Computed example of a mutant assay.
Amino acid sequence: MARTAPALAFAGVPRVNLMPPVEIERRRRASLARGWVWGVLAAVVAAVLVIMGAFALKLVADQQLAAQQSQTNVLISELAELSDVSGALATEQELQSFRSDAMGADFAWAPLVSSIRSALPTDVTLVGFDVVSGGVPQTGDPAKEVGLVGTLTLESPTPIDLPATVRGIRGLAGVSSVDGRSLSTGQQTVGSYVYELDIAFDQSIYSGQFATQEGGE
């Protein structure tokens, strides 16, 4: 029995690359060029996006800076207004301190004179006084500080009981001391008697109207 030669098996249709090497190289270079072009374009786009992002950030930062500057200007303006107010308050405080120093020894004469007259005997008249005002209060106890110091001049048609009169005046509110000083016969009216008394008042007679308030006004 004769043997037959095995048949050759082919996987597919045979192909032959007939493209010239020059064309292959050209296409390779063209593909490479397109890759570079796309890479450059991607880089340009990325750069543009970065620049736009930076510009946007700068724009936002500029807007925030402008807002902060505007707020700062408002605060500076408010501080300037407050400075005027502070200056006015400081001036007011200085004026109050000046008034307190100038008028700290303020008191009412009428009630003081009326009080002295009420302590005198019926026929004795207060005809004059010569007193010097004390200083402004320095402590919290006005009874320990001198308010007025001077003399009182009394006149009577008859001799008076001077010790009793002195005791009566000494018992008045605000009187810290009183003593008889001299006795003389009046020159204008025959038979009149003139008495001079040394007297001192404490600061309880002060009105306190212009005293500096604790903690400021």
Rank of each mutant, 00 (worst) to 15 (best):
T91C: 00
Q71N: 08
Q64I: 09
N73T: 06
S86E: 14
Q69F: 05
Q64C: 04
E94T: 15
E78Y: 01
L95G: 00
V74D: 15
Q68E: 11
E92Y: 04
L79V: 10
A66I: 04
E78L: 07
D84T: 14
L89F: 01
V85I: 13
S70N: 14
A67P: 01
N73W: 02
D84Q: 12
E92N: 09
T91M: 06
S70K: 08
Q63V: 14
L79T: 09
S70G: 15
L79I: 09
A66E: 01
Q69S: 13
T91Y: 02
L95H: 03
L79Y: 08
T72P: 00
S77E: 12
T72G: 06
A88F: 03
E94Y: 09
S70R: 06
L79P: 01
A88D: 11
Q63D: 15
E81V: 12
A88S: 09
T72M: 10
A67Y: 08
A66G: 02
E92V: 04
N73F: 04
A66M: 00
L65I: 09
E81S: 11
E81Y: 10
Q71C: 03
L75F: 04
V74M: 07
Q68F: 10
L95R: 05
S86L: 11
N73C: 02
S70F: 06
D84H: 04
Q69M: 14
S70P: 02
L75P: 00
Q68C: 04
L89Y: 00
L95M: 05
A88K: 03
E92K: 10
V74W: 01
Q69Y: 08
S77P: 05
V85N: 07
